[in-house]
Design a binder for these strands. Sequence first.
DNA 1: CAACACGTACGTATTAATACGTACGTTTTT
DNA 2: AAAAACGTACGTATTAATACGTACGTGTTG
Lengths: 216, 216
Amino acid sequence: MKGKIRTLLVDDHKIIRDGIRSILEMDENINIVDEAKDGTEALNIIARHNGKIDVVVLDINMPGLSGIDTTEIISKLYPKIKVLGLTMHKQHAYIVKMMEAGALGYVLKDGGGDQLIEGLKTVFQGKNYYSTEVTNTLVNGFVKKQQSKNEDFGLTKREVEIVKYVSEGLSNEEISKKIELSSRTVETHRRNIIKKMGVKNTAQMVARAIKKGVLK
Amino acid sequence: MKGKIRTLLVDDHKIIRDGIRSILEMDENINIVDEAKDGTEALNIIARHNGKIDVVVLDINMPGLSGIDTTEIISKLYPKIKVLGLTMHKQHAYIVKMMEAGALGYVLKDGGGDQLIEGLKTVFQGKNYYSTEVTNTLVNGFVKKQQSKNEDFGLTKREVEIVKYVSEGLSNEEISKKIELSSRTVETHRRNIIKKMGVKNTAQMVARAIKKGVLK
DNA sequence: CAACACGTACGTATTAATACGTACGTTTTT
DNA sequence: AAAAACGTACGTATTAATACGTACGTGTTG
C-alpha cells in the first residue's frame, strides 16, 4: 500500500464523527483528511480536494441532502472515490438503495471498530464489503422472497414452455409454429394452465407465473 | 457452553472428511461424533444417535441423496439439528436452494479453517452464517437484479394503474367499472402502454412490467 | 400563445382469446 | 391390468383484444 488511505468522514453528529475518527486513527494506514456534517458540505470538501480522496465514510441518515443522494452524486462525479455506507438501521430498503446509488460497502454503527476498519480497507481495494448483520438481513430477506415463490401450480414442462412463450408476447398461432403444434393444442394448453393456476385470463396467468417463480 | 458441540460430518470424499476433521478438532468445543459418506448414511447415523446431534456439516454435491434433499429431510425430522452447508461452488442457485431446504449456514471449501469453525459455532447458536464469498455472490446478484429493474418506460400514474388491474386479470370492461371510466378509454390506455413499452400484446406487457419493477 | 403531454372517448373492422365439450394415443402411476 | 396424467387436436360459439384514426378539454411548459 503506497501512502495512507485518504478518508473523508461525513456524519451530522460531531460525537459520532469523533468516535469514528478515534477508531480509524488507530490504524496507521488510514488518514482522515477532513470531516463534513452533511452531504452538501461533503461535496464541497471533495471539490476542494480536487477529488483526491480515496474513501468517503458516509452516514445514511442526514438532514438535507440524504446519504443516498450524496452517494449517487459522488459516484457519478468521482468514480474513483469509494463510498462506505454507515448507519444505525439495517433496513433492507436502505441497504439496497445505497448499493444502487454506488456504495461499495455498508457497515452498521453498532458493529464494532474492527468491522469499520476492515470495511474501509476492503472498499478501498474496490471490493464489496457488507457487515455481518447487514448481510444476514439481506440474505434472509432474499431467501424469504424466494420461498414465497416456488409454487409451480403443478404445471408440466410443456405448460411452462407455453407460459414462457406467452409471456414473450407470442400468440397461440405463433407458438404453434415455433414448436410445431396445432394452434388449437396451444390453445388447449393455455386453457389448462389458466384452470390449474386458478386465474381469470392470460394477463393474470403471466403475472402470477412470474411472481411465483414459475418462469426463470 | 455446556459440553461440546456434537457434530456429524457428511462428505463423499474421505480425504475431505479428514481435512475437515483435522480443522474442527483443533477447537476444543467441537466434538465430531461420527462421519457419513452420503445422505442416506447420514440419516441412518442421526437416527442411531436418536437425533442427539447438534450440527451436521454437509457437503452439497454428493452421489445419491443430494445435500439439498438431505438438508430438507433433516430439518423436517429433526428441527433442532442445525445444518451447515459446505461446497466448492458458490453458484447462486445452490445457495438459495440450501437456504430454502433449511440450512442455517453456508461455507465454501476454499474459505479457510477459521470460517468453518466460526460458521459451525454460529449455526449452533441458531444464527445464520454465510461465508464472505457466498454473501458477496448473493448480495451482488441481488443488487444487480434490483438494478436491472427500475425502468418505468415513462408510464403515467394512470397507465401504471391500468397495468396493475390488467395484471390482476381484469378486462377493459371490468377496469372501466372499477375506476369509473369508459371501457374505450381503458382500451386506449392499454394501447398506449403497449406502444410506450414496445411490446406486442397484453401478456408481454404484464411480463415486462413485473420484471422491470413497474408494479410493486 | 403555441406546443405538448395527459386523460378522456368514439367508430369501424379484424384478429385473438375464451368457453365448453370431446377425443385419442402414450406414458406413468397405482 | 386399470386408472390417471400428459400431450395432442378439433368443433362451435362468444367475448375480448387489437389496429388505426380521430377528437377534445385541461394543464404545463417553452
